[in-house]
Simulated assay, not measured.
Amino acid sequence: MDVLSTTSTMTAGSANSATSSSSTAINSDFDTFLKMLTAQMQNQDPLEPTDSTEFTAQLAQFSAVEQQVQTNETLATLSAQIAALGNNSMASWIGMEARVAGLAHFDGQTPVEVYPMANGAADEAYLIVKDENGNEVDRVKIDPAAETVEWDGMDDDGAPFPEGNYVFQTQSLSNGKDLDTVLAESYTRISETQASTGGMVLVGTGGTKYLSVDIVGLREPTASDET
Protein backbone atom coordinates (compact mmCIF):
# COMPACT_ATOMS: atom_id res chain seq x y z
CA MET A 1 0.00 0.00 0.00
CA ASP A 2 2.88 2.32 0.89
CA VAL A 3 4.56 1.51 -2.41
CA LEU A 4 1.44 2.47 -4.34
CA SER A 5 1.07 5.72 -2.39
CA THR A 6 4.72 6.56 -2.99
CA THR A 7 4.36 5.82 -6.69
CA SER A 8 1.28 8.02 -6.93
CA THR A 9 3.03 10.86 -5.11
CA MET A 10 6.06 10.59 -7.36
CA THR A 11 3.84 10.59 -10.47
CA ALA A 12 1.93 13.69 -9.37
CA GLY A 13 5.15 15.40 -8.26
CA SER A 14 6.83 14.69 -11.58
CA ALA A 15 3.83 16.06 -13.47
CA ASN A 16 3.82 19.26 -11.37
CA SER A 17 7.57 19.68 -11.86
CA ALA A 18 7.23 19.22 -15.62
CA THR A 19 4.34 21.69 -15.76
CA SER A 20 6.31 24.27 -13.78
CA SER A 21 9.34 23.93 -16.05
CA SER A 22 7.21 24.17 -19.20
CA SER A 23 5.40 27.25 -17.91
CA THR A 24 8.74 28.93 -17.16
CA ALA A 25 9.93 28.11 -20.66
CA ILE A 26 6.76 29.55 -22.21
CA ASN A 27 7.05 32.79 -20.22
CA SER A 28 10.69 33.08 -21.25
CA ASP A 29 9.84 32.51 -24.93
CA PHE A 30 7.00 35.04 -24.74
CA ASP A 31 9.31 37.69 -23.25
CA THR A 32 11.86 36.96 -25.96
CA PHE A 33 9.14 37.35 -28.60
CA LEU A 34 8.15 40.77 -27.22
CA LYS A 35 11.79 41.93 -27.18
CA MET A 36 12.25 40.81 -30.78
CA LEU A 37 9.00 42.51 -31.79
CA THR A 38 10.12 45.78 -30.12
CA ALA A 39 13.53 45.60 -31.80
CA GLN A 40 11.87 44.94 -35.16
CA MET A 41 9.66 48.02 -34.76
CA GLN A 42 12.62 50.20 -33.69
CA ASN A 43 14.79 49.09 -36.61
CA GLN A 44 12.22 48.99 -39.40
CA ASP A 45 12.81 51.04 -42.54
CA PRO A 46 11.00 54.36 -41.98
CA LEU A 47 10.43 54.64 -45.73
CA GLU A 48 8.80 51.18 -45.85
CA PRO A 49 7.36 50.54 -42.40
CA THR A 50 6.01 47.11 -41.64
CA ASP A 51 2.23 46.93 -41.66
CA SER A 52 0.94 47.01 -38.06
CA THR A 53 -1.51 44.25 -38.86
CA GLU A 54 1.45 41.93 -39.44
CA PHE A 55 2.70 42.57 -35.91
CA THR A 56 -0.78 41.96 -34.56
CA ALA A 57 -1.09 38.70 -36.48
CA GLN A 58 2.29 37.49 -35.19
CA LEU A 59 1.35 38.32 -31.60
CA ALA A 60 -2.04 36.62 -31.95
CA GLN A 61 -0.45 33.52 -33.44
CA PHE A 62 2.08 33.23 -30.63
CA SER A 63 -0.65 33.74 -28.02
CA ALA A 64 -2.72 30.95 -29.59
CA VAL A 65 0.24 28.56 -29.49
CA GLU A 66 0.97 29.55 -25.88
CA GLN A 67 -2.64 28.87 -24.89
CA GLN A 68 -2.65 25.47 -26.63
CA VAL A 69 0.57 24.40 -24.89
CA GLN A 70 -0.82 25.46 -21.52
CA THR A 71 -4.03 23.51 -22.23
CA ASN A 72 -2.02 20.39 -23.08
CA GLU A 73 -0.05 20.78 -19.85
CA THR A 74 -3.26 21.07 -17.85
CA LEU A 75 -4.64 17.91 -19.46
CA ALA A 76 -1.38 16.06 -18.75
CA THR A 77 -1.53 17.09 -15.09
CA LEU A 78 -5.17 15.98 -14.79
CA SER A 79 -4.31 12.66 -16.46
CA ALA A 80 -1.50 12.05 -13.94
CA GLN A 81 -3.80 12.90 -11.04
CA ILE A 82 -6.55 10.58 -12.34
CA ALA A 83 -3.98 7.77 -12.78
CA ALA A 84 -2.83 8.28 -9.19
CA LEU A 85 -6.41 8.14 -7.90
CA GLY A 86 -7.08 5.01 -9.97
CA ASN A 87 -3.98 3.35 -8.59
CA ASN A 88 -5.05 4.09 -5.02
CA SER A 89 -8.60 2.80 -5.58
CA MET A 90 -7.34 -0.37 -7.28
CA ALA A 91 -5.08 -1.01 -4.28
CA SER A 92 -8.15 -2.33 -2.45
CA TRP A 93 -8.25 -5.18 -4.99
CA ILE A 94 -4.98 -6.61 -3.71
CA GLY A 95 -5.65 -9.96 -2.06
CA MET A 96 -8.96 -10.39 -3.90
CA GLU A 97 -9.63 -13.01 -6.57
CA ALA A 98 -10.37 -11.61 -10.02
CA ARG A 99 -12.19 -13.50 -12.73
CA VAL A 100 -10.35 -13.07 -16.02
CA ALA A 101 -10.48 -14.49 -19.53
CA GLY A 102 -7.80 -16.64 -21.16
CA LEU A 103 -4.56 -16.55 -19.22
CA ALA A 104 -4.13 -18.56 -16.00
CA HIS A 105 -1.21 -19.87 -13.94
CA PHE A 106 -0.51 -23.57 -13.35
CA ASP A 107 1.78 -24.30 -10.40
CA GLY A 108 2.77 -27.73 -11.69
CA GLN A 109 0.52 -29.74 -9.38
CA THR A 110 -2.79 -28.05 -8.46
CA PRO A 111 -5.60 -28.45 -11.02
CA VAL A 112 -6.86 -25.21 -12.57
CA GLU A 113 -10.57 -24.45 -12.21
CA VAL A 114 -11.88 -23.12 -15.50
CA TYR A 115 -15.19 -21.58 -16.55
CA PRO A 116 -15.47 -22.84 -20.15
CA MET A 117 -18.22 -20.45 -21.36
CA ALA A 118 -19.31 -22.87 -24.08
CA ASN A 119 -21.84 -21.82 -26.71
CA GLY A 120 -25.41 -22.51 -25.55
CA ALA A 121 -26.20 -24.23 -28.86
CA ALA A 122 -23.27 -26.64 -28.58
CA ASP A 123 -23.72 -30.38 -28.22
CA GLU A 124 -19.97 -30.96 -28.02
CA ALA A 125 -17.13 -28.90 -26.55
CA TYR A 126 -13.37 -29.05 -26.00
CA LEU A 127 -11.11 -27.22 -23.57
CA ILE A 128 -7.99 -26.16 -25.46
CA VAL A 129 -4.83 -25.36 -23.50
CA LYS A 130 -1.93 -23.43 -25.02
CA ASP A 131 1.44 -22.41 -23.61
CA GLU A 132 2.66 -18.82 -23.55
CA ASN A 133 4.09 -19.22 -27.05
CA GLY A 134 0.67 -20.10 -28.46
CA ASN A 135 1.42 -23.80 -28.91
CA GLU A 136 -1.47 -26.15 -28.15
CA VAL A 137 -0.36 -28.55 -25.40
CA ASP A 138 -3.65 -30.20 -24.45
CA ARG A 139 -7.20 -30.67 -25.71
CA VAL A 140 -9.84 -32.15 -23.40
CA LYS A 141 -13.45 -33.03 -24.25
CA ILE A 142 -15.84 -31.43 -21.76
CA ASP A 143 -19.57 -31.22 -21.09
CA PRO A 144 -20.75 -28.14 -23.02
CA ALA A 145 -23.33 -27.48 -20.28
CA ALA A 146 -20.75 -27.54 -17.46
CA GLU A 147 -20.37 -24.28 -15.55
CA THR A 148 -16.87 -25.19 -14.38
CA VAL A 149 -14.31 -27.86 -15.26
CA GLU A 150 -10.90 -28.74 -13.86
CA TRP A 151 -7.78 -29.04 -15.95
CA ASP A 152 -5.52 -31.52 -14.14
CA GLY A 153 -2.37 -30.32 -15.89
CA MET A 154 -1.31 -33.84 -16.88
CA ASP A 155 -0.08 -34.92 -20.29
CA ASP A 156 -1.02 -38.19 -22.04
CA ASP A 157 1.69 -40.07 -20.11
CA GLY A 158 0.38 -38.84 -16.75
CA ALA A 159 3.26 -36.44 -16.19
CA PRO A 160 2.49 -32.86 -15.10
CA PHE A 161 3.03 -30.01 -17.51
CA PRO A 162 5.71 -27.49 -16.48
CA GLU A 163 4.74 -24.73 -14.07
CA GLY A 164 3.85 -21.59 -15.96
CA ASN A 165 1.14 -19.47 -17.52
CA TYR A 166 -1.29 -21.08 -19.95
CA VAL A 167 -4.07 -19.80 -22.21
CA PHE A 168 -7.43 -21.57 -21.98
CA GLN A 169 -9.97 -21.61 -24.80
CA THR A 170 -13.27 -23.40 -25.36
CA GLN A 171 -14.24 -24.74 -28.77
CA SER A 172 -17.98 -25.32 -29.26
CA LEU A 173 -19.49 -27.59 -31.92
CA SER A 174 -22.97 -28.59 -33.02
CA ASN A 175 -23.59 -31.66 -35.15
CA GLY A 176 -19.88 -31.82 -35.83
CA LYS A 177 -19.74 -28.24 -37.12
CA ASP A 178 -17.63 -25.58 -35.43
CA LEU A 179 -19.70 -22.85 -33.75
CA ASP A 180 -16.98 -20.74 -32.15
CA THR A 181 -13.86 -20.73 -30.02
CA VAL A 182 -13.77 -18.34 -27.06
CA LEU A 183 -11.46 -17.60 -24.17
CA ALA A 184 -12.35 -19.57 -21.07
CA GLU A 185 -12.35 -17.80 -17.70
CA SER A 186 -10.68 -18.48 -14.36
CA TYR A 187 -9.91 -16.78 -11.05
CA THR A 188 -6.52 -15.42 -10.03
CA ARG A 189 -5.36 -13.83 -6.78
CA ILE A 190 -4.38 -10.17 -7.25
CA SER A 191 -0.98 -9.38 -5.75
CA GLU A 192 -0.19 -5.95 -7.21
CA THR A 193 -1.66 -3.03 -9.17
CA GLN A 194 0.32 -0.95 -11.66
CA ALA A 195 -0.38 2.20 -13.66
CA SER A 196 0.37 2.07 -17.38
CA THR A 197 -0.39 4.08 -20.51
CA GLY A 198 -3.08 1.54 -21.40
CA GLY A 199 -4.83 1.81 -18.02
CA MET A 200 -4.54 0.10 -14.66
CA VAL A 201 -2.78 -3.28 -14.76
CA LEU A 202 -3.47 -6.00 -12.21
CA VAL A 203 -0.81 -8.62 -11.47
CA GLY A 204 -2.13 -12.06 -10.62
CA THR A 205 -0.73 -15.43 -9.60
CA GLY A 206 2.52 -16.34 -11.33
CA GLY A 207 2.99 -12.78 -12.62
CA THR A 208 0.03 -12.90 -14.99
CA LYS A 209 -1.03 -9.38 -15.96
CA TYR A 210 -4.47 -8.06 -16.92
CA LEU A 211 -5.93 -4.66 -17.68
CA SER A 212 -8.55 -3.64 -15.14
CA VAL A 213 -11.15 -3.45 -17.95
CA ASP A 214 -10.58 -7.18 -18.63
CA ILE A 215 -11.73 -8.15 -15.13
CA VAL A 216 -15.22 -9.65 -15.38
CA GLY A 217 -15.68 -10.56 -11.73
CA LEU A 218 -14.23 -10.08 -8.26
CA ARG A 219 -14.64 -12.16 -5.09
CA GLU A 220 -13.20 -12.69 -1.63
CA PRO A 221 -10.56 -15.44 -1.44
CA THR A 222 -11.98 -18.88 -0.66
CA ALA A 223 -11.15 -20.46 2.69
CA SER A 224 -8.87 -23.03 1.01
CA ASP A 225 -6.87 -20.27 -0.66
CA GLU A 226 -6.38 -18.39 2.60
CA THR A 227 -4.92 -21.39 4.45
Score class of each variant (00 low, 15 high):
V137R: 11
Q40R: 13
L127P: 01
V216P: 01
T6D: 12
A159N: 15
A146K: 08
T9I: 11
I82W: 03
P49H: 11
D31K: 08
I128V: 15
T32R: 12
T205I: 08
G198K: 12
E132K: 14
R99L: 04
M10V: 13
G13T: 09
G108P: 01
P160S: 11
T38A: 11
A118I: 01
T53R: 12
L78R: 10
G13M: 08
L173P: 01
V203N: 06
L127K: 05
E113K: 14
I215W: 06
T197Y: 06
G95Y: 07
E163M: 10
T56C: 00
S79H: 09
Y166S: 05
E113A: 05
A125C: 09
G102V: 02
D225S: 15
F168V: 04
D214F: 04
T71E: 01
S196N: 03
G198W: 02
A101G: 07
G102Y: 01
A60K: 01
V114T: 07
G95P: 03
S5M: 13
D178R: 13
A118F: 09
A84G: 06
P162L: 05
V69H: 00
L59C: 07
G176N: 06
T227L: 13
G198T: 13
E124F: 03
T53C: 03
G199T: 06
S92T: 15
S191D: 12
K177D: 15
V129R: 05
P49T: 13
T205H: 07
L37F: 09
I190Q: 07
G206E: 06
I94V: 15
S20N: 13
P46Q: 11
I82Y: 04
I215K: 03
E185G: 05
V100D: 02
S174R: 15
D214P: 02
D214L: 04
E226D: 08
T188G: 10
V140K: 14
I142C: 04
W93F: 12
D143Y: 08
N119V: 10
T71H: 00
Q171T: 14
A121E: 14
D2I: 14
A12E: 14
V201E: 08
Q67V: 00
A159W: 04
R99P: 00
F30I: 08
